[in-house]
Each structure stands twice: as structure tokens, then as C-alpha cells.
Design a binder for these strands. Structure first.
Lengths: 222, 222
DNA sequence: GTTAAATATGAATGAATTTTCATTATTGTT
DNA sequence: AACAATAATGAAAATTCATTCATATTTAAC
């Protein structure tokens, strides 16, 4: 989980970085709001922690900037200001949570999990590496352009990405993609996999769907 | 916004009810966790406030019950327990926020707005009267059963519901449903409207799509 | 290496959807 | 009421998609 921390107090920033690193989460630190906005223009994060008081551009202004740019990324304000009117202002501006210093790292981590969980469980995108499924528009986007998939192919790649990294039996795939009471007497599944493979490969260069002899398919995670 | 409050302290409960009522939000009060679960079985709320310590069933158990039943409704724990381990436990169980007593009503209201905003902005359903579009499953549900729509028909009814109550020109409909650079030389739009009308009428009894001579279509809101 | 089972593939079929088109019906205006 | 413009309709044509089938290739086990 990529985390952006905008915090001018080096001690706090480094302590957070250390804690997150222990949990295996890479952290990027911006020393003021201006730098945070600079990072945000080119990198996408899973959650953003903002100190309120920072040089140049304040956390609350960064928050406003993010929301005005249309992003829904989870934002947590992280500040010494404990007055109700500050909290209300931040939350109304689109922040997802507000934690006052000093705080416990465990609580912060739990709050981050809560907002990220909510964000991801309700998002309309399914992302795998640089392949993004737009679940509502039913489009597949990659840096190399859009992949045009038919309905069944889209359902199939969605199932694959949702179960990436583990072997999926053909029976289970069938149940989910073709419907509970559909028992194929032919090789529809294989045929659809074939077509999907071709389209991914055309766009992606390599194939991501591996066959496991006698067991099913595996969507590869590197 | 329908709010459920589970709180055994009558004074707190009534004070909250009064405050929410001033903002025009109807409130339902459960005096313990058991009653809260009872309400939840038949009524749907926009947000749920749970006291941790309550007779019979605790707030944290209600929270667990809600998440296990598959609901994603926003939940805020509202308690005197301020220890970090309690907060962490609640948030990890699926609560969206945790507010410790005593709290300011303004802050609580702002936190409610934050979680509800997040919840609603990312919902995958489009509801009109008793017609529900499942935007991801691309299904249309009504109390009289499911309506089976083809791709174009689904896109069209989605556009209609999003713009209900105002006249939609055929050019605008075309742009959105068929794509920006599609200029029909035939009456595709009318033909698709016809098919959609028939399917809605078969299920719904009456037609909801009105033609405005010379201007376009209007999806009726009573 | 052989073999049998499992999987992959290209082409053909069948079904559903989308679009077209000719005709009919409706609307607003005179 | 007559007219012209607009909209609705049924059926046909075109297209796309899902499925089937026959054949080829790959795999694991012997």
C-alpha cells in the first residue's frame, strides 16, 4: 500500500516511515504542501496523510486541491489542532478522518485500514499491475491503450483478477462466469480463455493466464 | 438521512435525537444491541451509531453482526472507552469511525457526513422509485422481478434515470450512449427507445418515457 | 520415447443484438 | 381539416458474440 505523508516535522515523518516500513508499506515523504502536490501530479497513492500546518501550502489546502482535482483517494488529516471547528472544516472539505497529535501508531494504522477498506470495497475499478478494469463502463485500460473485450471475456478477466495468484478450477470459473446451474458439455471455458489470452497478449506482450495441468488456471502475480 | 442510534443512556440518545431532528434527519433509537439488530432486520438506515457498552448485545457485536450479514452501511462506534486497543478492535471489525465520549455534536455530524459521503459517492446502484439498476452486474431489478435488458437498452435507461425530470435531446442521448463521434443517419435512438419502452411496460405496467415533440425525451418523475 | 489425458486452436454454427429501412401514426401549425 | 414535421413500429439485414466441433498441441506419467 503506497502511502504519501506530508509532514514538515522530520522526526514524526521518519518515525511514521519506520513503522509503515515494518508493515511492508512503502512511504513517500513530502516536506511541505507544495512538494505533496508535486508528487500527487505524477504518482498515485492508496492513502494520503496530511499535516495541517506546513510551510508554503497547508494540509487543508492540499486536501482541497485533491478533491477539486476529482480524486477520491482516502485522506487523513494529522494535526495538533484539536478544536472542533478545525475537525469539522477538514471533514467537510473531503478529508476522511482526522487524527490529533500526539497519536498512537496502532490507532492511526487502524484508521488508515478503515478508510482504505471502505475506499477499495466501494470502488468501481479493479486494478492489477497496470491493467485497470472499469467495472461500470466495462472497459479495460492499460498504458498501451484500451483492450476491447466482449461481455464474457470481461467477466472472465474480472474473475481472474479477483482470484489472481491462486489456482482456479474450471468448475468454479464456470459457476461464477456462466452461472450456477450451467454445466458445460463442451469446452466453452477453454475457448473463451483462448480469445481472452489473444487480446491480452496483443496489448500486453506476454500472457498472464497460466494453465495448470489437471487443476485449472492461474492468473500470474510476479 | 435515516439514522439508527443504539444507546442505552436515554439522556444521550434524546439529546442526539433532538440535534439530528433540527437538521431534519429522522432518528430511530434502540435501547440495546438486541433491539438494534431487530430494527436492522426490517429497516434500512443510512448510518448507524453504536454505543459499545449496552445491555444484552454490545455495540461491537452489533457491528460484527452487520458486517457478517454483508451490509456495508456506515457504522460509527460511540463510546467512553478511549483505549487504543478498543479503537483498533472496532475499526478492524469494520466500523468506519470511532468517537469517544464526551464528544461535540458538530464533530459527530461532520464525521457522519464524511463516512456517508464516501459511502454514497461510490455506490454501484442507481435507484429510481422501485427500479434499481445494478451498474456492475448490469441487471435491472423491480419488485415484480428482473427486467432483462440488452447492452444498449441498459445504457439508455441509465442515461434516462440519471437525467430524469428534464428533457433530453436526441443529440445528447446519442453522444452519451452511442459515443461522442457517432452521428446517426438513421433512427437508432427511436428504435432502441421503442424496445426499452416495451420491456419496461411489460414489467412496470405503465410507460415512463415520454416523447416531447421536437425536443427529445423525458423520463417521468411523479 | 510412448501413451493417454488435458488443453489449445481455427473455423463453423447458432443465437442474440444492433442497425437499417419502409411504412404508419402522431403532433403542432395553419 | 389539411399539411408538414416528427416519432413509432415491425420486419429485415447486418453485425457481433457465444458456443460448438474437429483437430492439433502440450503435458505428466510410465
Amino acid at each position: 500500500m503506497e502511502i504519501l505523508i506530508a509532514e514538515d516535522d522530520e522526526q514524526i515523518a521518519n518515525s511514521l516511515r519506520k513503522n509503515f516500513a515494518e508493515d511492508g508499506n512503502p512511504v513517500m515523504i513530502a516536506k511541505d504542501g507544495e512538494e505533496a502536490i508535486h508528487f500527487l501530479k505524477s504518482i498515485s497513492f492508496d492513502v494520503i496523510l496530511l499535516d495541517w500546518r506546513m510551510p508554503k501550502v497547508s494540509g487543508i489546502e492540499v486536501c482541497r486541491y485533491i478533491r477539486e482535482s476529482g480524486s477520491k483517494v482516502p485522506i487523513i488529516l494529522l494535526t495538533a489542532l484539536s478544536q472542533v471547528k478545525n475537525k469539522v472544516e477538514a471533514l467537510n472539505l473531503g478529508a476522511d478522518d482526522y487524527v490529533t497529535k500526539p497519536f498512537s501508531f496502532d490507532e492511526l494504522a487502524a484508521r488508515i485500514n478503515a478508510v482504505v477498506r471502505r475506499y477499495q470495497s466501494n470502488t468501481n475499478e479493479l486494478i492489477f499491475n497496470d491493467i485497470t478494469l472499469d467495472l461500470i463502463g466495462r472497459k479495460v485500460k492499460t498504458p498501451r491503450g484500451e483492450i476491447y473485450l466482449s461481455g464474457k471475456e470481461f467477466d472472465l478477466i474480472k474473475y481472474f483478477i479477483l482470484h489472481k495468484g491462486s489456482i482456479m478450477s474450471k468448475e468454479d470459473i464456470c459457476k461464477e462466469v456462466w452461472g450456477v446451474n450451467f454445466v458445460p458439455s463442451t469446452n466453452v471455458v477453454e475457448a473463451t480463455v483462448k480469445n481472452l489470452r489473444r487480446k491480452i497478449e496483443d496489448n500486453y506482450g506476454k500472457n498472464l493466464i497460466k494453465s495448470i495441468y489437471g487443476e485449472g488456471y492461474l492468473f500470474i502475480v510476479e
